[in-house]
Design a protein around this nucleic acid. Sequence first.
DNA 1: CTTCTGACGAAAT
DNA 2: CATTTCGCCAGAA
Length: 126
Amino acid sequence: MPSTLYDRIYDVVRHIPPGRVATYGQVATVVGAPVTAREVGEAMAALRDGQPEPLVPWQRVINAQGKVSTGPRQQHLLEQEGVVFNAKGHTDLRRFGWPGPDPAWAAAHGFQVLSATDTEQQLDLF
DNA sequence: CTTCTGACGAAAT
DNA sequence: CATTTCGCCAGAA
């Protein structure tokens, strides 16, 4: 069962816990090169025409600016999970950002773990 | 085959 | 901050 690129992306997204958010870039990094943030966006966009099982928590993937890129509905779903957004529409990635996949799980599936620098980059904004 | 369009992102202005 | 520019590129038409 050769999992496709999108399947691998969905696998990673499914591991983002409720109440946390990951950026397209983070997901791409975890899946590993040559996957780019853009492709992650493509994969998420593809979900509009039918979700694979188990369902993918697409709402937990946001852009590097800490904002949702698909309108108010996505933000609403996240707020129901406890993610807080300020008036400008961005969240504090230091508090709600995803630390990365469980190292053991990542290793077992050939995924990458997020390095410190990957998360350090989520400072400012707020 | 060509063209167009992005659920991106980093850097420059 | 908001905008623009550019790199990169998978799909749909």
